[in-house]
Design a protein around this nucleic acid. Structure first.
Length: 464
RNA sequence: GGCGGGAUAGCAAAAUGGUUAUGCAGCGGUUUGCAAAACCGCGUAUGCCGGUUCAAUUCCGGCUCCCGCCUCCA
């Protein structure tokens, strides 16, 4: 039985899909005006693992995963203007970049990636429904606002009271709104801005309505899981609930999952603080799988501190796992044993990836213990290790390719052929019992970041 | 100010009312020409103060500190 921590109830509860033949999950994706940073990488990887695990539990064809793309908003318009390009050119570029980054991190593509700009009809229809049902009103200036007081449950997801929110000093005053807490559904266009026709004149959607329109259009009014970063809990997801329930009169989402932040020096990594590292920057120094492993070493709801030291640690750990797999064929095999049970128990406990990874290390140790005494058994366990790790999107590379892969810090270094030649010379020296020369060559290789291992009469190597 | 999350060994990170987390780093041993890798062994961690209990890191209360949301943000 899968248990998940539902942020709506703030409790861990058994996951019961509305329809086990079609488990439906929507995750708020990127606003595409810049490259993705490590915080985005965390959302991508965390929900990728959740998607993979749901597919394992319910079957590959029985999970629908939607991750939207916000391709029109204030920041996109501003960035396109300052770049002197059309917003469509801008967003197309960063959508491509996002796909490159996600693919490198081993993130499976969602079933659909709806974009706000191609859902205008659905967005407008939803706003009209909200007006008809008394949840929204057109202001004199061409904007349409959601009337927060019309929705009794407002604040339930984020645990906020309307009065507390009103008491907060940070609510901006806007003449057009009846209540400062009301939020915009449709923004009238300023001159020169991208705009779409609507019953209220030319304009564009507010930020929250697109997700309500796209999620319910793709998954139905009532679906299983809605996810995103913790910072979206309020106001974004709170507003989505108000919109979706207000427009349909039905229940919206059963389970809300929010991942914790990536931090730098104990501060949230964010665009506004400017303390972010883009995925592609980090991938210049570390293999994508190292980044993925690093993300999964902490529980998805916990904060995750980013630093080179932690990435170095992740690389060493992954090296240990791949070293255990070295020499075995690349098969995967599901075995019903204690390792399997422990792994699945961990994953079913709100996707406890740190504990699941601990099982991988215990398995690696067992493989190493048995490799010389019972090669067949060790090979079976290696296949199991690869199979379990595969559920996390890890250890699917060829061990040698990983271990000998481009070193971090982009050191120019020696080519594989040059390494092989130096190893050949060293092995000649060893055959001649010329230890001084043999050690000199090994030290020379080490200075180039190449580490040698003499095993069972064969010399293997890896890049540090 | 309102609401919420957190403090675990050198670092990172799970779990648990009494019994080994795990990884990285470190130390000793086996192995090796020497190393590396691997294996074996080694740390007697749970912010502070009370309470409940036969027993608390784990439950309850208080305190200190950190972080997040309340404004765009994954």
């Amino acid at each position: 039985m899968l248990y998940v921590h539902n942020n709506l109830t703030r409790q861990k509860e058994p996951f019961q899909p509305i329809d086990p033949r079609n488990v439906r999950m929507y995750v708020c994706g990127m606003t595409v005006y810049d490259y993705c940073h490590i915080g985005h990488a965390r959302v991508l990887v965390v929900f990728d693992v959740i998607y993979r695990y749901l597919r394992k539990l319910y079957g590959e064809g029985h999970v629908t995963y939607i991750r939207n793309i916000t391709d029109i908003d204030d920041k996109i318009i501003a960035r396109a203007n300052s770049n002197r390009e059309s917003f469509l050119d801008l967003t197309e570029r960063f959508i491509d970049a996002m796909h490159e980054d996600a693919d490198l991190l081993g993130v499976l593509r969602p079933n659909q990636e709806p974009r706000a700009t191609v859902y205008m009809a659905e967005i407008i229809a939803m706003i009209e429904a909200l007006v008809v049902r008394g949840h929204a009103y057109a202001a004199g200036n061409g904007d349409v606002y959601y009337d927060v007081s019309s929705f009794a449950d407002y604040g339930r997801l984020s645990g906020k009271q309307l009065d507390d929110l009103r008491a907060g000093a940070r609510v901006e005053v806007d003449e057009a709104k009846t209540d400062p807490l009301d939020f915009v559904l449709w923004k009238s266009a300023k001159p020169e801005e991208p705009s779409w026709d609507s019953p209220w004149g030319k304009g564009r959607p507010g930020w929250h309505i697109e997700c309500s329109a796209m999620s319910t259009h793709c998954l139905g009014n009532h679906f299983d899981i809605h996810g995103g970063g913790l910072d979206l809990q309020f106001p974004h997801h709170e507003n989505e609930i108000a919109q979706s329930c207000g427009a349909s009169g039905e229940a919206f989402v059963n389970v809300w999952l929010h991942n914790g932040f990536v931090r730098v020096d104990d501060e949230k990594m964010s665009k506004s603080l400017g303390n972010f590292f883009t995925i592609r920057e980090v991938l210049e120094k570390y293999a994508p799988e190292v980044v993925r492993y690093f993300i999964l070493t902490s529980h998805y709801r916990s904060p995750l501190n980013y630093s080179d030291k932690h990435l170095d640690n992740a690389k060493s750990a992954l090296t240990t796992l791949y070293t255990a797999l070295r020499g075995f064929d690349a098969s995967t095999h599901e075995v019903d044993n204690e390792f399997n049970n422990r792994f699945n128990t961990a994953m079913q406990d709100d996707f406890n990836t740190p504990e699941a990874i601990a099982v991988l290390f215990d398995l690696a140790k067992e493989i190493n213990r048995q490799r010389d005494t019972d090669a067949a058994q060790a090979g079976q366990l290696a296949a199991q290790l690869r199979q379990l790790a595969g559920q996390l999107g890890l250890l699917q590379d060829d061990p040698q390719a990983f271990l000998q892969g481009k070193s971090q810090a982009g050191s120019g270094g020696l080519s594989d052929a040059e390494v092989d030649e130096l190893i050949r010379q060293r092995n000649q020296a060893r055959a001649d019992k010329n230890w001084a020369e043999s050690d000199r060559l090994r030290d020379a290789l080490k200075a180039q970041g190449i580490i040698l291992e003499d095993n069972a009469g064969k010399t293997s190597w890896r890049r540090a």
